[in-house]
């Protein structure tokens, strides 16, 4: 039985298989409408989420299965002090697969150790969010036809952004990928991520503070939010925040085939005027998330069309 706790649990080959399956599901959804008939997905969301939970539920419903679960800890036995292990031991008797979001880091791994059914990590605090990374990879693949040789700009909060760390880890496995890390000094990529996935593997990268200077060289621009609570001084936050707002003016310097991604939710780091630009891919990215989750559910349940 397989679980998905960290995107690096999947080999490059397995990710390619998932992308191929997701592509086929999107092209021929009618072929997959019954493949999970009578199967149930439990969505155990110990903290609120909009996109991820709805995306998982839509994915299972589109495969012909059904869903059950809760969307916040207060409506579960966790509010009575039940452990994660006990919760999954019970839920495993009601469902065929579990998607879990939990505010505490490592909770889905604890669940996987106890569970009798596959567990998917749907986000554990600031730690891992592997299905977001699969969504990001699928979007890049759909836009660029592959990963090798791409120049990927990652912009904003690179220190605390879990999706950035996972995307770097996953993409550093492809030949010729180059990263441009665009952030204020205060929010640079943590040393351990740089050492583990960039320095150790010899992947080319540069660290810059100006989005304007870097944007013209990029195939992919992955935007993240610079969060106010990360700064000690309001003045410093306000000074840095505006450097990383993507506007139509900034996009004038970008290539015509740039793809702009964002894990969402967006606050103000991408001006709404950018949404109509054909290079803005973030809403399509959210839509693609459903198809890659459908592929993942099928893989972990061992079903095929």
């Amino acid at each position: 039985m397989r679980h998905l706790i960290d995107v690096m649990d999947l080999s490059v080959g397995e990710i390619e298989e998932l992308i191929a399956l997701a592509t086929d599901i999107q092209a021929h959804p009618e072929d997959y409408r019954e493949v999970c008939r009578y199967r149930k997905l439990a969505t155990l969301f110990f903290e609120p989420s909009t996109r991820t939970r709805l995306s998982f539920e839509a994915a299972m419903l589109d495969l012909g299965g059904s869903t059950l679960g809760f969307s916040e800890a207060s409506s579960s036995s966790a509010s009575k002090g039940e452990s994660v292990s006990d919760t999954v031991a019970v839920v495993g008797g009601y469902a065929d697969i579990i998607a879990m979001r939990h505010p505490q880091e490592g909770a889905p791994l604890v669940a996987a150790m106890r569970s009798s059914v596959p567990v998917i990590n749907a986000g554990d605090g600031g730690h891992n969010h592997p299905t977001q990374t699969l969504t990001d990879l699928f979007t890049v693949y759909r836009k660029k036809g592959g990963f090798s040789g791409l120049t990927v700009g990652l912009c904003g909060d690179l220190k605390f952004g879990r999706t950035v760390h996972s995307l770097i880890a996953a993409m550093s496995r492809y030949a010729g990928v180059r990263f441009v890390l665009i952030s204020p000094v205060e929010l640079r990529l943590p040393d351990y991520v740089r050492e583990q996935y960039l320095d150790a593997t010899g992947v080319a990268y540069s660290e810059v503070t100006s989005l304007d200077a870097a944007i013209g060289s990029l195939d992919i621009l992955y935007m993240t939010r610079v969060q106010r609570e990360r700064f000690f001084s309001e003045e410093e936050y306000l000074r840095l925040r505006d450097c990383y707002i993507l506007t139509p003016e900034k996009l004038r310097e970008a290539r015509a085939d740039l793809s702009v991604l964002h894990p969402l939710p967006r606050v103000n780091e991408i001006a709404t005027a950018v949404d109509d630009d054909p290079r803005a891919c973030y809403f399509e990215q959210a839509r693609l998330g459903k198809f890659i989750r459908m592929a993942l559910i099928m893989k972990l349940l061992g079903v095929s069309k």
């Binding site: 452990s83 292990s85 939990h102 505490q104 880091e105 490592g106 604890v110 583990q196």
Partner: peptide, 20 residues
Amino acid sequence: RNPRCITTTEQGIRHIFRLV
């Protein structure tokens, strides 16, 4: 010592560290 780690609240869990 990470206050956000599940080991701080989950009872009966083994504390495991791996060599990286």
